[in-house]
């Protein structure tokens, strides 16, 4: 089953009297376990696409289906439930909860999902070990480097064993070494866990990791690769 399907998804932002078609009738299917890069210049609609896929926003028209379920009809609470269970997010800024330690940040989605204490500990510890931060578990975000914070964010995104992880410019604020390390980890975890990853990026190094590349311009897909799979 497709992890996510967009059908004729259109998103229009109105600022003052100016209408911007951020997404213009896009249809795209992402299969489970894919490692996809969403590329295109600024303003091409990458972030909007991720927001629709992540149930953070609704399209003005068209549908978004996650695991076959049309999510455009869900209310705020139902979308929150869906995000909590099925979707992991990685942001450009290292979006950790500043008052929580690395371990607590990874544990938080598990707590919210009602995972028991023992399993929480096992899963959070295993993930932090997987991203190479076994010795940094008790550090707060402000005690960690950008690269370390982003690795915590990767571990946190994967904690609930989501269907897909959405990453918006995950390497944009990292230096080359840290950026590559983060991408290596994500590529490895993609293979190990079978979680689909979708990156919005214009970093060529990130694109190099992708199994599939979806190009965007002016809110549309380029190359007609919408329904194809690179696998």
């Amino acid at each position: 089953m497709a992890a996510i399907e967009l059908e004729h998804a259109t998103k229009i932002y109105t600022i003052g009297e100016v209408e911007t078609r951020a997404l213009d009738g896009v249809s795209l299917t992402i299969e489970e376990g894919e490692f996809t890069a969403l590329v295109g210049p600024s303003g091409s609609g990458k972030t909007t696409m991720l927001q629709l896929m992540g149930c953070l926003d609704k399209p003005n028209s068209g549908t978004v289906k996650i695991n076959g379920q049309d999510v455009t009809r869900l209310n705020a609470n139902q979308r929150a439930d869906l995000r909590r269970e099925k979707i992991g997010f990685i942001f450009q800024f290292f979006a950790l909860v500043p008052v929580l330690s690395a371990y607590e940040n990874v544990e938080l989605p598990l707590l919210l999902n009602g995972v028991g204490a023992k399993e929480r500990k096992e899963r959070a510890t295993a993930l932090l070990e997987a991203v190479g931060l076994a010795d940094r578990m008790d550090h707060r975000p402000d005690q960690m480097s950008g690269g370390e914070q982003q690795r915590v964010a990767i571990a946190r995104a994967l904690a609930p064993r989501p269907l897909l992880v959405l990453a918006d410019e995950p390497t944009a604020n990292l230096d080359t070494a840290n950026g590559e390390q983060a991408m290596d980890i994500m590529a490895r975890l993609n293979k190990e866990t079978g979680t689909a990853f979708i990156f919005a990026t214009h970093d060529q190094r990130v694109v190099a990791y992708a199994q599939r590349i979806v190009k965007m311009r002016d809110g549309r897909l380029v190359d007609g690769n919408a329904n194809g799979s690179a696998k």
Binding site: F89, A95, P98, P109
Partner: peptide
């Protein structure tokens, strides 16, 4: 505000 957005993205509900 941004942290609240992060928590919401993690699936935290308004009431939480």
């Amino acid at each position: 505000t941004r942290e609240i957005g992060i928590l919401a993205a993690l699936g935290m509900k308004g009431r939480q």
